[in-house]
Design a protein around this nucleic acid. Structure first.
Lengths: 159, 159
DNA sequence: TAAAATAATGTATATTTTTGCAGTCCAATT
DNA sequence: AATTGGACTGCAAAAATATACATTATTTTA
């Protein structure tokens, strides 16, 4: 059937974009996207696509794509918009740390800078990490919202 | 105790040399080598060492070392002890600044990043200075301890 | 060094994942 | 049209893995 392939692709996308810790969790996401299946089927899917489960300091353990493991780089053929390069966003007191795929930090940082957001004083980018320095007086929530204009679905990347 | 480290090393070796499909299987091997432990402990060990489980055409799925998975990534297995490159460590409120020998900052920062410490949100490296951004909620002591797993004898570098 | 804080571990149990079996659907074959 | 064979899936049970709680060892602190 055709929908199986669709489903596999959707699974890959979800895994790529989020930290998923269990099949039930992934199942929920899929169902929200309109797919109908059971956890048993999902288990077989995961084996077919060869996703692995890996210890993660935050969520216990998470699913990862085989390709991700091997190359540790963003997937080809995904359009180059900042959101696709961003792995996670974490606030640490008055700072915000954005992790990207290796080597994409400066590109994403440029997007942020050139957006000239009032809430953001500046950024410093390494290879895969961007330090976002907010202006005084803005809450984490406000900063997140501002960054959201550059990075779509940023909430889903929040750790 | 010391035997925990021994055990971890043995686990790595076994996983590296064989295709292990379940914790019970691994448990057997360990017991034959003289280690005494239960499946519960093994489960925790596997999380600590960061072994992942991956689909395998032959055995269904097998355990793999984190490093094995990351082969192709940047910092790879450079035979360098980060500790030797670190000059000093200073805390400034919620930030931690690590000084290294000239040009070594990014290398050491990579080590820190790739350790995926739960206590650390991210790092940004210059030429000889690394800015370590802790996650919220951890004390300087906890951060130091976490960094200690990457940088041996870090206490001696504390300013 | 005694008290307090941490870390390690086992037991029992909960949670998660895999799988055997049976039923459905569809395309190819007779 | 009926039959056959394979792919796909759900259900329920088995297998594997993770964890809450309690206990003991270890390390720090005062």
């Amino acid at each position: 059937m055709n929908s199986k392939i669709d489903r596999h692709n959707q699974i890959k996308r979800i895994i790529l974009d989020n930290k998923i810790a269990s099949q039930d969790e992934l199942l929920d996401s899929l169902r929200k996207e309109g797919f109908e299946l059971t956890q048993a089927t999902l288990s077989r899917d995961l084996k077919e696509i060869r996703v692995g489960k890996l210890a993660d300091p935050l969520r216990g353990s998470i699913y990862v794509l085989h390709e991700q493991l091997k190359q540790n780089s963003r997937q080809a053929n995904v359009p180059l918009i900042p959101g696709n390069s961003v792995l996670s966003v974490v606030f640490s007191y008055h700072l915000c740390v954005v992790r990207t795929f290796p080597s994409f930090a400066s590109t994403v940082a440029n997007y942020i800078d050139s957006s000239q957001l009032a809430e953001i004083a500046g950024t410093v980018a390494g290879d895969d990490t961007i330090l976002v320095i907010p202006r005084e007086g803005y809450s984490q929530k406000e900063i997140l919202k501002a960054l959201g204009t550059v990075i779509p679905d940023i909430e889903t990347k929040l750790d």
